[in-house]
Design a protein around this nucleic acid. Structure first.
Lengths: 351, 351
DNA sequence: GTGAAAGCGCTAACAT
DNA sequence: ATGTTAGCGCTTTCAC
């Protein structure tokens, strides 16, 4: 069924090399020849065969994104940025999303298959030595999103600073006993956020209280899930005395945490202050205070870095760290505004 | 760089055909030969080259999903279903998401490039004759999600029935002047929902009032956007007398609509009843009543249909219609429950 | 500026 | 059960 370069060549009275040159915008082809070839190709409805191109060029025309799970919309927002940048190129986007963390390796293997993609972006995945070794062996361009390793390009957020700002913000609002809702302890970003939180407390002459730190035990995605947040918050609220405010290391967990809080009948922010991390779009509707990550921009930049490295593999490695931005909404009883619309009364209306 | 089948063949003392057979699980290979080949392959770290396979098999090892835009999480939920089903196969997922509707055609062209994918799924895209013609010409397996055409497999929701249930629900709660927030009039699902809405009104001896029907004018994604909902609701609330309740044809628009309502100081549901369509995850947190689409299941089924058609192109076309389910939450002042957790007090706490 | 020819790495007849 | 061989559709030297 499919037309080949041979059909076009014959019809246009040229060789296949010329047809190929035309479609690759080679300057070494006479204007009128180019015109004729394109005319014939259009008339016959010819399209180059992507797999054949990939094979001959020794480079796939796709780029892979490996995402822990699509239920956390953080990843979706980053993907949007990726996609928008890639749409400007000839690379198409392969998306690998695993329902559980264990599958990340399986997806990684698929994405790294030879001839599959020209490069991969790996989201929020701890860089174990084993994984690093696997990536190196693949000799493929790699960009890390929301994680770090000196051998690979990366884009991430200043987690320590974010945790610091979160805790300090709660302190500034008069809360004293500040709890922490952690993801799994082996999540590097979560650990960094925790360090920032501890720094803020110490700066206020408060010693972090291990009893007020509870980690999500959901096995999925290092605990960054709604269910994980729900369950961890339930445990945290059993503490006696209970915390006056809580920093939750991610908005998706904060969603579950809010449910848990509601079930106990506590009021936010009067009885309990709350601040999250990420600034998902839903957070605005909930009036959730949080630390914003510029997810879309991070996606765009990640795509940019990958494209650059595909073009020039020997470029020096760069790692870009974005600064988190405090978004003050209702859940921490602030009188400040974040410059955006405030949804305070929205939720009141609904009640 | 890059081991080939020849390297393995030589090392294992067999021909390349045998190596190929081993990797394609052909039964026509002796157990001990298979074992030896696999052993060599593992030792040397051999992986088949996907592009070469695609070329030789005349079938790409990917499947494409063309999505209007990732800002509507409806698509994300369907994508999850797709991805989960595809992960069980050897097909990987290409995602095309356009920021504006006009780009759907551009993305379609890319997805349909020869050798790019083994089949495509097209989300929420009106099947114009031109588009149908293009798809037919491509001779590729196609599955339609959230739209319909007799020539292609499809999975969708009973929009008319959903619109009917929505309006009837509002009527049953005593609302009389019921408005409608439409997407673009050329969105088929929106039109179907409108028909259901009108049927419910007529059944209650109410004549649909054109003055109470306002359409989103956002050019993106047929008006299915937060901004579109916001702006349309503002206009609707200027009507005099204004509606007592409103059926919004999609949750993403309802998000914007809620913002508009809030700005006017109206209370939901006392001053204004509201019901949406989709049941996004955020809707539960907002207490938004809505008609649920089983998005994840729709994605799984769409993947299933596509895989089947890839395997057997001559299968008869099937179209599956899911029934929407009424989810009664706060925004329509119901005393019923939907069996799930109620978030009534959650939003109250936040206020 | 254009063409001939040698791959790219694999699959699938066909032969044995 | 295994090997030989002819493609799959394109890119890319290398000549001219």
């Amino acid at each position: 069924m499919g037309l080949t370069i041979y059909d076009i060549a014959r019809e246009a009275g040229v060789s296949i090399a010329t047809v190929s040159r035309v479609f690759n915008n080679s300057p070494r082809v006479a204007p009128h020849t180019r015109k004729r070839v394109l005319e014939v190709a259009r008339r016959l409805g010819y399209q180059p065969h992507v797999s054949a191109q990939s094979l001959a060029r020794r480079q796939a025309q796709t780029v892979a994104a490996i995402v822990p799970m699509l239920t956390n919309y953080f990843f979706v927002e980053v993907l949007r940025g990726l996609q928008d940048r890639l749409a400007e190129t000839s690379f198409d986007l392969l998306v690998y999303a695993a329902p559980t963390l264990s599958d990340v390796n399986a997806h990684l293997e698929r994405a790294l298959q030879r001839g599959r993609s020209a490069g991969v972006m790996i989201f929020s995945t701890p860089m174990t030595e084993e994984r690093v070794e696997r990536l190196r062996r693949s000799r493929q361009p790699v960009v890390l999103v929301d994680s770090f390793h000196p051998d690979f390009d990366s884009v991430s957020i200043d987690n320590e600073q974010g945790g610091y700002l979160a805790a300090r913000h709660l302190l500034e609002h008069g809360y004293q006993r500040i709890g922490l809702l952690m993801a799994h302890p082996d999540s590097v970003p979560a650990r960094e956020r925790r360090h920032g939180y501890e720094r803020a407390l110490r700066e206020a002459d408060l010693e972090p209280d291990p009893a007020l730190i509870v980690a999500s035990t959901d096995p999925h995605n290092h605990g960054y899930t709604e269910e994980g947040g729900y369950e961890a918050m339930r445990r945290l609220l059993e503490r006696n005395p209970r915390p006056e405010a809580v920093f939750v290391v991610s908005d998706i967990m904060a969603l579950g945490a809010l449910r848990a809080i509601e079930e106990t009948g506590l009021r936010v922010p009067e009885d309990l202050g709350l601040i999250g991390f990420d600034d998902l779009r839903v957070s605005r509707f909930l009036g959730l205070s949080t630390l914003r990550q510029p997810m879309y921009e991070m996606g765009k930049l990640a795509a940019e870095k990958l494209l650059r490295r595909i073009a020039e593999p020997e470029l020096p490695v760069t790692s870009t760290v974005f600064a988190p931005r405090l978004i003050c909404r209702r859940t921490c009883a602030s009188d400040e505004q974040d410059g955006q619309r405030d949804v305070t009364t929205l939720t009141r209306n609904l009640a």
